[in-house]
Simulated scan of single mutants.
Amino acid sequence: MFHLSMPLFWRVCLINGAVFLLGTLALALSPATVSAQPLLSELVVLLLGLTVIVLVNGALLRAVLRPLDRLTTVMARIDLRYPGLRLDEAGSGPARELVRGFNAMLERLEVERSTSTTRALQAQEAERQRIAQELHDEVGQSLTAVLLGLRYFMDTAPEPVRAELDALRDTTRTSLEEVRRISQRLRPGDLTDLGLVSALAGLARDTSARNGPHVRRRLPSSVPDLPPETELVIYRVVQEALTNVVRHARATTVDLDLSLSDDALVLRVADNGVGIRAGAMGAGIQGMLERARMVGGDLSVRSHGGGGGTEVRLRLPVPAPVLGRAGS
């Protein structure tokens, strides 16, 4: 194990020294001689010997430094948003310790990024809950009080003023509905009160009702008992996917499918819009990817192009005991 723990600098020096020593011994023990004025044949022998030394030295150094070339290539491809890329330690030769250290560093970075992302998303959800509660308790109640006051004054106001108060009441009622809608998006009460399937159906109805594309949903009557974090991830992925469709896709129809395979729950949101650019990674898509990884899921976003639209697919592994309870 000594050669594995030796610094790379000393390995290179050792290889060069060994090659030069062997070359010197070969010249010293060979019958070749060099005249005071070297002959052409002697120069040819010296040139051949030098060529052999250089080639052997290059081959040995190449074996040591090749993993560094692979390391440089991998470093250029590293993207912590797509974890799992590693160098092969088995084929690294003398640079195995360097490769092992690099892989360990990547592992730590991915774990730290995953942990920090999870904390950030949890903090985001907590902040959404707080804002939604304040909208409901303060802004919502204030607007409700305004509506009641307008109704009282309309009963006693003269006819010309009553028409203006009626218009103001309509504006206030619209604002109250908008506040309630924003509060619902921030804190999906349907998810807690009615369950995942009903909450997804509500998202689909709301999207179609707001002059959005027609959402064709194929949802099961029930799903296995899932952790609240997993249900929230599914809800947020559908919410973000439908929001992207409304804002960017220029689609007329969207398919929302949720199905249970042998070992996984598969969610699919596909539209017939303009698609997305290759390699596009906005904050919305990145957020969906991070949420999926939080619960061990696998999310992909594919664009069919040419009017074929975009497909968001989320696959979440479901433990066998949960599947057993769902089937019983």
Rank of each mutant, 00 (worst) to 15 (best):
M1R: 09
F2H: 10
L4K: 06
F9M: 09
R11E: 06
R11C: 05
I15E: 04
I15A: 11
I15H: 01
G23K: 05
A26G: 04
L27D: 04
S30A: 12
Q37H: 12
S41P: 03
L46P: 01
L48W: 09
L60N: 04
L60T: 04
L61R: 06
A63Q: 13
R66P: 02
R66T: 10
R66I: 01
D69P: 00
T72L: 13
T73R: 13
M75L: 13
M75T: 12
M75Q: 13
R77L: 15
I78Y: 07
I78P: 00
L85K: 04
L85D: 05
D88K: 07
G91I: 00
E97T: 11
V99Y: 02
R108H: 15
R108T: 12
E110D: 09
V111I: 11
E112H: 09
R113H: 06
T115S: 08
S116K: 08
S116A: 13
S116L: 11
Q122T: 03
E125M: 04
E127L: 10
R128T: 02
R128Q: 07
R128S: 05
Q129G: 01
R130V: 03
I131Y: 06
A132H: 00
Q133K: 04
H136P: 00
H136Y: 02
G140L: 01
S142E: 12
L143C: 08
T144H: 12
A145F: 09
V146M: 10
L148Y: 10
L148D: 11
L148S: 08
L150N: 08
L150Y: 06
R151E: 11
E159F: 12
P160K: 08
P160V: 08
V161G: 05
R162I: 06
R162C: 05
E164A: 13
L165E: 06
L165G: 05
A167V: 13
T172S: 10
T174M: 11
R181T: 12
I182A: 07
L186F: 02
R187G: 01
G195W: 06
V197E: 06
R205A: 14
D206E: 14
A209H: 07
R210L: 14
R217L: 09
P220W: 07
P220K: 08
S221P: 01
D225H: 12
L226P: 05
E229F: 01
T230P: 01
E231W: 00
I234L: 15
I234T: 04
V238Q: 03
E240W: 09
T243L: 12
T243M: 11
H248C: 03
R250N: 12
A251V: 02
T252G: 11
S259G: 13
S259A: 14
D262Y: 12
L267V: 02
R268C: 08
A270E: 02
I276M: 14
M281V: 01
I285C: 02
I285Y: 06
G287W: 05
G287A: 11
G297C: 15
S303F: 14
H304L: 15
V312W: 01
V322P: 00
V322R: 11
L323I: 14
L323H: 08
G324L: 14
A326C: 05
